[in-house]
Amino acid sequence: MLIRVEIGIDAPGIDSLLRRTFNGDGEADLVRELREDGLITLGVVATDDEGHVVGYVAFSPVSVEGEELQWVGLAPLAVDESYRGQGLARQMVYEGLDSLNEFGYAAVVTLGEPALYSRFGFERAAQYDLRCRWPGTEEAFMVHRLADDALNGVHGLVEYSDHFNRF
């Protein structure tokens, strides 16, 4: 198993993984469009011994109240069914968080299962008066600070790129 930054040759494997994992085209189309528009800040893949993509996590820019604050959104996160329960998602997310921290990013947000993401150090964003545009997501919208002062004086609407509004 190898966990690394995605490269161009990984695109078909990522696409296939996302279509299998999410039983449809939405996430695969989202990632393809983000990639085509240069909006993937960081993509992390896990490959098996034959080089097949068995895990993927993408990070893309977000703004807070219209300001660019060196924040990114984590989405999507996918692990091939045969590799689940082995800590692969945790390893990919941590690899991504470490790299983003090294690159100087301040915070990461995600919309996902609180029980999963809290294990990765994410907290409910609502407790910091942060929200996303989708109603009913207060429990699932989460934030992870990379910089100690990332949340100081920051509150309001966190917006993903328009690509996320189409799916």
Rank of each mutant, 00 (worst) to 15 (best):
V62K: 01
D162M: 08
M92V: 06
R32D: 13
E159P: 08
A150T: 11
G104D: 06
V108N: 01
T47C: 14
R32S: 14
I9Q: 14
G43E: 08
R119L: 07
E33D: 15
G136Q: 03
T47N: 00
G26I: 06
S16L: 14
E36H: 13
D48I: 13
R84C: 10
Y56R: 01
T110A: 06
A78W: 11
G112K: 01
G26Y: 01
D80I: 08
L39A: 12
G153E: 10
V45A: 09
I7E: 14
R90I: 02
G112C: 03
E27T: 04
I3F: 03
A89K: 03
Q70P: 00
F59H: 04
M142C: 05
L116I: 15
L97Q: 10
P12H: 05
V5P: 01
G43L: 07
R84L: 08
R32W: 07
W71H: 06
F164M: 10
Q86N: 12
D149F: 05
F103N: 03
V45T: 12
L88T: 10
A150C: 13
E27W: 03
A125D: 05
D129Y: 00
R4D: 11
L157W: 09
A28W: 08
E33M: 08
T21F: 07
E68V: 11
I40W: 02
V79G: 04
G55Y: 09
V5D: 12
H52L: 12
P76L: 09
E113Q: 03
R145L: 03
D129M: 00
V109E: 01
Q127T: 09
D29W: 06
S161E: 13
D98I: 10
V44C: 09
M142Y: 03
V57R: 03
L116D: 00
V64I: 12
Q91A: 15
L116G: 00
E68I: 07
L77R: 04
Y94D: 11
Y105E: 01
L74C: 14
V64Q: 03
F103Q: 15
A28G: 07
S161G: 12
V79W: 07
T110M: 01
V5T: 14
F59M: 04
V109S: 02
R32G: 04
M142P: 07
D148G: 12
S161M: 07
P61C: 01
P114M: 01
L111D: 06
H155I: 00
G66L: 05
H155G: 05
